Amino acid sequence: YLNDDMIFYNPIKKDRFFKDGKPVDFISTSLVKRGRLFQFLKGKKIWIDSLNNNLNLINSSKDIKQLENEFLSDSSYSLTDKINNFISKNILGKVFWIGHWHHPQPYLKSTLIEVHEKFSAQMASSSSNRFRKSDDYTHYLFRYWHLMSGAFYPKKCNDDYIKNICGVEDAKQAVKDLTGNRKVNFFCLNDDENMDSQDEFTVLN
């Protein structure tokens, strides 16, 4: 699964996405709940509401305490990831937040089927919304399910590049960062609401 703003930058082998018949993925939990206080400080966003809806379903159905440590402390994870995952499993017993990379997301068809059978009513309700609403769910429901099920190959790949383009200098910096960069497999360049009309014209032309 990938959004229309993601670009494949380098040749990529199959085992970047799937290994041993499982999607390559990682668990990076956070101890900060994106609740009312968080949204008061950061601003309310429907996307955050939707991800919280996903987590509420997963926390009610899957128990992080059942996951083996190999999924929570792989050598590719940062020390912060390992500590947060340990606390989430052994102290909190649930997940407040799961980190994401903005790059193509591998899934198994079996996961899509299993989640749809489990949460068909919620998915049907969300799909009926023409525009995003606070009671939505996102495709990350599938991801959270295979993470909490241990149905993934643990590896955290830091191989993406994301930059918001606010003007000409940002565009030039992105070109500089990406030119000849063999570590970046995917990149995403987004326009920004702070871009003024003159900069927009210059960048596009």
Rank of each mutant, 00 (worst) to 15 (best):
L2P: 14
D5A: 06
I7C: 06
F8C: 07
K13L: 06
K13R: 11
R16Y: 12
R16I: 09
R16T: 09
F17K: 04
F18I: 00
F18G: 00
G21F: 01
K22L: 10
P23E: 00
V24M: 03
F26E: 09
S28A: 06
T29S: 15
S30T: 09
L31K: 01
V32T: 10
K33E: 14
R36L: 14
F38P: 01
F38W: 10
Q39C: 08
Q39Y: 07
F40I: 04
K42H: 07
K45M: 14
I46M: 13
I48L: 13
D49A: 11
D49R: 10
L51C: 10
L51E: 11
L55D: 03
L55E: 07
L55N: 05
L57A: 03
L57Y: 09
I58A: 03
S61H: 10
L67R: 03
N69S: 10
F71Y: 11
L72H: 04
S73M: 03
S75I: 05
D81G: 01
K82S: 04
F86M: 05
I87G: 02
K89F: 04
N90L: 04
L92Y: 14
L92P: 14
K94W: 09
F96P: 01
I98W: 08
G99F: 04
G99I: 08
G99A: 04
G99R: 07
H100S: 15
Q105C: 10
Q105H: 09
P106Y: 09
Y107A: 02
Y107C: 07
K109S: 09
S110N: 07
T111Q: 11
L112W: 02
L112H: 02
E114Y: 06
E114K: 08
E117G: 13
E117F: 13
F119T: 01
S120E: 11
Q122T: 00
M123R: 07
S128K: 15
N129H: 13
N129G: 04
R130K: 15
F131M: 12
S134R: 13
D135E: 12
D136E: 08
D136S: 06
Y137E: 03
T138R: 12
H139V: 11
F142E: 07
Y144K: 02
Y144P: 03
H146W: 06
L147A: 06
L147W: 12
M148Y: 01
M148N: 00
S149N: 14
S149D: 13
F152K: 05
F152G: 01
K155V: 09
K156P: 03
C157H: 12
D160M: 10
D160N: 13
Y161F: 13
I162G: 05
I165N: 01
V168F: 14
V168E: 11
D170H: 00
A171I: 06
A174C: 06
V175E: 06
V175G: 01
L178Y: 05
T179M: 11
N181Q: 05
N181L: 01
R182F: 02
K183A: 06
N185T: 05
F187H: 05
C188E: 02
N190P: 08
N190I: 08
D191M: 12
S197Q: 11
D199I: 04
D199T: 07
V203G: 00
